[in-house]
Write a protein that binds this DNA or RNA. Structure first.
Lengths: 149, 149
DNA sequence: TAAACACCCTGAAGCCACTACAGGGTCAAG
DNA sequence: CTTGACCCTGTAGTGGCTTCAGGGTGTTTA
């Protein structure tokens, strides 16, 4: 199976697959000796299924590489696998809490301007001109929607 | 006021301030003619307050630059300001919903391995070896914790 | 048989908002 | 006069791709 076909089947781009291969998320492909095209076999499909499932669960490549290790070693203990999932779940939960706090703050801000008028009287700009609350700054510091975990 | 002092007051690094200046988020600093050190005045403090407040609300630099435009033009209409906030709020809400879906999926996954044992029997790995549900893949496609908005 | 077009290759640069580092200059205290 | 804190510029790194430049290959159709 050629790379384009694989990409279509997995609903991603060929660049993504090449990128995964380069970073060891899927095994190296077999190359056609005449044109150097990549060819994929069942084991590639299986591992790509695993990887894409992990990515859909928002795991980082580092986390996925750890899980692949465990996956390849049947004698490994479950503990390390559980730990990765638990920590990841923790990241996600923290991120949700942060974003919910943010949502509240933005809704409050949005309330400052109920009636559209001139910028001079805009409560939103006036609000943003005030410094941050100490509490907010302390706990939350800076994060963004696309923020780090 | 020198850059280090400013950074301390705003609880950020000097590199961040230099970066903001380079990207037009704060006005160019006045330079000391003998040693080329940056010096900051009240207008810098005011604008940096605004910018840091926006960043604490997870706005992108592009969004902040738009708001700064409106801020500098007292004759501007409130509408554009509201719109930026509304759209940003929308991003945040969507992101929260995505992450909550993710959290559910991860909790379900975590349930697959209740008793620590050998990797051979690990329900988590077995689960990850299965392809994604079509519904999930379709609506959600791929995102990550630090995901895009 | 040749042109058109779809597909494949590599390697480098771009995205975002910083962060870190290399390699220097400046300044105040002891 | 040395130490150490601060400042400068410019470049590279982060993650997970995406895009682009500049090619080669393969199939189909005129």
């Amino acid at each position: 199976m050629k790379i384009g076909e694989l990409a279509k089947q997995f609903n991603c781009t060929v660049e993504t697959i090449r990128y995964y291969e380069k970073n060891g998320l899927i095994p190296a492909s077999v190359r056609d000796s005449t044109n150097n095209y990549r060819h994929y076999q069942q084991r590639h499909l299986d591992q790509l299924t695993f990887v894409r499932h992990c990515r859909a669960l928002a795991m980082s490549h580092a986390e996925i590489l750890e899980l692949l290790q465990a996956r390849q070693d049947p004698s490994a203990n479950c503990r390390s696998i559980d730990q990765i999932i638990d920590e990841h779940l923790q990241h996600v939960s923290v991120r949700i809490a942060e974003l919910q706090l943010l949502e509240d703050q933005l809704q409050t801000l949005r309330q400052q301007c109920k009636t559209p008028g001139s910028r001079k009287d805009c409560g939103i700009i006036q609000d943003l001109d005030r410094p941050l609350e100490k509490t907010v700054r302390a706990e939350h510091d800076i994060s963004h929607v696309s923020g780090s975990h």
